[in-house]
Simulated scan of single mutants.
Amino acid sequence: MNLQTLFQDFNPSKFVVHTCLLIFTILFALKLDNYLTWSYWTIFTPIWIWKILVILGAIVGSYVWWRYPHFRLEGEAYIHYKSMLISLALHLILLMFELLVCDNLESKRHLWILVFIPLIFISIVSIAICIWAVKHDRSFELELFCAVNVLQFIFLALRLDEFIMWSWEVVFVPLWIVMCLSLVGVLYTIIFAAILLRTPEVNAQQRRSSINSALGYWFLVIPILVFQVLLADKLDDDIRISYIAVVSPLFVSFTTLILMSFSAKGGNKWWFAMRKDFCSFVLGACPVLQEYANIAYHSERRTNRVEMEQVEKNEKTVKRADLLKPIQPIVSIEMPD
């Protein structure tokens, strides 16, 4: 294991988001099962930490952007900074939705359709943001998730307000469609990885990368599908299990996303004004860590002392045998003319 190789493709933004979502999912399930008596404002603490880091990162990045104008000339600095501002705007609107959700869970004084208005607005705006991100080669995972689930958000709000009395399996129809498309993508990655394994022209690194992608998407999509089935049955009273059991498949998905963040690359370099990859930024800020980043650990089998002595004894035996070999003179016979 080479520490520098491990962290040079590390995406800190995805790591923070997925870790906070994992902790929040556990706390929220325990709250629904009445194992925790905390208020929902406390249960949402991982979400608040996520949003605070986003806001602080944008403030520091904006300060450096306006304080040092020459930094704007670095490569695609303007695209990175604009992308950060767009992401900040989406997170602020998402924060408004989360505040309304938390308040409504505590007081139940709002209609859910009003609570979901910020999320529906994000979903509509995300369509244009996805188009902009494709043109400028930027990642758009949150935006894509919101854009494809706008109908799902409307159905959820109407069902929670009991304006529609459909079963939850019907309410989740838009999400079923998305999951079916995701399964097609998973099957494609598995077939593609199998083809690369049987292609001799492909090198080992490409094969390993395709296998890791196939496994990653498999452990990401399948647990989400299982969670969706369990949740629909739980809400329709078809099964009687705890909410922590319902969300347990999500633990696999979030763990997969956290592990994938170590090879996600990318990321906006203007969060907290890093202006470089996370690994380079950390090593530059803490030069002492450079010594540890240059350490590599190998899992090769080491030879113990007894084996070393046996090898040396064998080498001496071979050398002694070579010395005892008889010397055979080379006789040259010349034929007379």
Rank of each mutant, 00 (worst) to 15 (best):
E162F: 10
A133C: 14
Q228L: 15
L324R: 15
L56N: 14
S139M: 13
A133H: 15
D103S: 14
S139C: 15
E309S: 13
S167W: 09
G267S: 07
S126E: 06
A245K: 12
A29L: 02
K316R: 14
A232R: 00
L220T: 03
S182G: 14
I244H: 08
M165I: 03
L289F: 08
Y68M: 12
I190T: 00
N212Q: 11
I191V: 13
V226D: 03
R301I: 14
W48S: 08
W66Q: 13
A77R: 12
W132G: 03
A273H: 05
V252T: 05
T256M: 01
Y188M: 12
L105E: 02
W166R: 06
Q152S: 07
V64G: 12
E98C: 13
W112T: 00
F155W: 03
G266V: 04
Q310G: 08
T42L: 09
L187C: 08
I124N: 12
R208L: 07
F163I: 03
V311A: 10
S242N: 07
S261F: 06
L183F: 04
L36D: 00
V170F: 06
N212M: 10
W168G: 03
I333W: 08
Y68A: 12
Q152V: 15
Y188S: 11
F15T: 00
V170A: 15
I327Y: 11
L160C: 04
I131D: 12
G267M: 03
I295P: 14
D322M: 09
F140W: 11
E334A: 15
S39N: 15
S213D: 06
R67G: 14
F140N: 14
L32E: 02
I49N: 01
N304M: 06
V134T: 12
L175F: 09
C146I: 07
L215Y: 01
K51Q: 12
E291W: 14
H91I: 13
E141P: 15
I330Y: 10
I86D: 11
V226W: 00
A128H: 13
L111K: 10
A29T: 00
C102L: 12
Y40E: 09
M308W: 06
F281T: 02
S107N: 11
Q4F: 11
N104M: 03
F219L: 02
W270Q: 05
F192Q: 09
V178E: 13
L90C: 14
C102I: 08
A214G: 00
K313L: 11
Q8P: 07
Y217K: 07
R208I: 01
V54T: 05
I117Q: 07
R207K: 11
V16Q: 05
M260E: 06
F163V: 01
L158D: 02
F116G: 01
L160S: 06
S209V: 00
Y68W: 14
H70C: 14
L3I: 09
A193G: 07
F116W: 06
W270D: 15
M179R: 09
L27W: 01
F10H: 02
F272H: 04
F145I: 04
K234Q: 01
K82D: 09
L119I: 01
